[in-house]
Design a protein around this nucleic acid. Structure first.
Lengths: 222, 222
DNA sequence: CAGTTACGCTACGAGCCGTAGCGAAAGCCA
DNA sequence: TGGCTTTCGCTACGGCTCGTAGCGTAACTG
């Protein structure tokens, strides 16, 4: 959660103001809302946060790193609600993620930092650690819970299980992002329902034999 | 394909140099390779193309529009190979798209312009018209072909058919982009195969009853 | 030939970047 | 208490990019 790794050498000396940290990250999110990624400048963020511009540069290497940390905090909200079935679990996660992508801060920032990360390996790693892994945990938790319920079979082959989890994760996160940001169409309950039935049906096909229970067509239209 | 809509009022006067157009777009792609999206400047592109900087500003509103046009040309390469079955058609498209995303120009540019488009509605429309629709056509063509083969049932409900096509498109494009750019893991034949079987299995579940032929588990592991 | 539009070139104010240097503040430790 | 260390706010700076204005010239039309 801390911006830098270790405060360099030792303890001793004036400690970094944690209030400044929270003020800066909050100011960054607000600046994203008001200006968007491109027009956001570090000088403006510093003014909003009530700190000196040099303080920003002492803690973050640049705009990308700062924004990653700022939006990463929003991903703490993501949870896996125990809704009783795998289908409703997936729908819940999809709608939560969509709500996050609906906010102007994340909407304008997420794709931008990913674009940056294509030519900046450390940045990619930072995104993976503070954002992507946080989402992926939901997929793993959802599967474990479904296996406890008996909705999904246990997978003794750990390598294959990891491959499948990666696949499912890319499908869910990718589809939601694409629908929300590229197609720019609403990710509502109806879409989540149809998408979930696709994932569940696909899960049956991809994990060898079919799972314990997959509805053929839930209740989209009578 | 032309940068601007109509050359304003009338014909008459010196025509725009089409050679300059191609030189600028090619220079833009090369600059994307060498510098990446962020460090790319219009002044640099103008120098590479051998034209004046003012010429660039006369034709494009800004960096985003120019880059969209530059990478859009690359999407002309996308085709739907008639491979004989829906499964191999999908795998082919996935691998083609992945190859496109593997190129450094598109890798760094695509996410960046989409990020821009979240706060720039005309830009989003430009992207849709020159890039997204070009991809979506492949999905529609693939479905039509599969219906001709008898692999998929005809869909009398055109509204539902459109919804399903949109869903499938977001799933395919989103998953490939997420795998390639966010997870940053290879989109190879093995992944394409597993992903395709997921899509086909999901297609069976989402389009009411099952289609004519869906393999339970192709040949991923013996 | 006159009329119209695109072109290359130069120059400019404006804005942001990222850093250096300073004195003061805020903690630790003897 | 005094010394040591680190962070802080502030100011100032060179360097770069932006986007535009103005000019004379080139190319094509009627």
């Amino acid at each position: 959660m801390q911006s830098r790794s270790t405060p360099s050498t030792r303890a001793g000396g004036r400690p970094r103001s944690t209030e400044a940290d929270t003020a800066i990250l909050e100011a960054t999110r607000q600046a994203l809302v008001d200006l968007g990624w491109t027009k956001l400048t570090l000088g403006d963020v510093a003014t909003r946060a009530g700190v000196a511009k040099t303080t920003l540069y002492r803690r973050w290497a640049g705009k990308s790193e700062l924004v990653v940390d700022a939006v990463a905090e929003l991903f703490d909200e993501l949870e896996l609600p125990d809704s009783g079935s795998l289908a409703t679990d997936i729908e819940g996660v999809v709608l939560q993620f969509a709500a996050l992508l609906g906010r102007p801060e994340t909407k304008t920032a997420l794709m931008a930092v990913v674009a940056e990360s294509t030519t900046d390996e450390p940045l990619r790693e930072r995104i993976r650690a503070s954002i992507v892994d946080r989402q992926k945990r939901l997929v793993l938790a959802g599967r474990a819970r479904a296996q406890d319920r008996g909705e999904l079979p246990a997978e003794p082959d750990t390598a294959a299980a990891a491959r499948t989890a990666d696949l499912i994760f890319d499908v869910i996160a990718g589809a939601v992002v694409h629908r929300a940001l590229v197609s720019a169409e609403p990710v509502d309950a109806e879409w989540a329902e149809q998408f979930t039935s696709l994932v569940l049906g696909g899960l049956a096909a991809v994990s060898g034999r079919g799972p314990a229970a997959v509805p053929s067509a839930p209740d989209t239209a009578p």
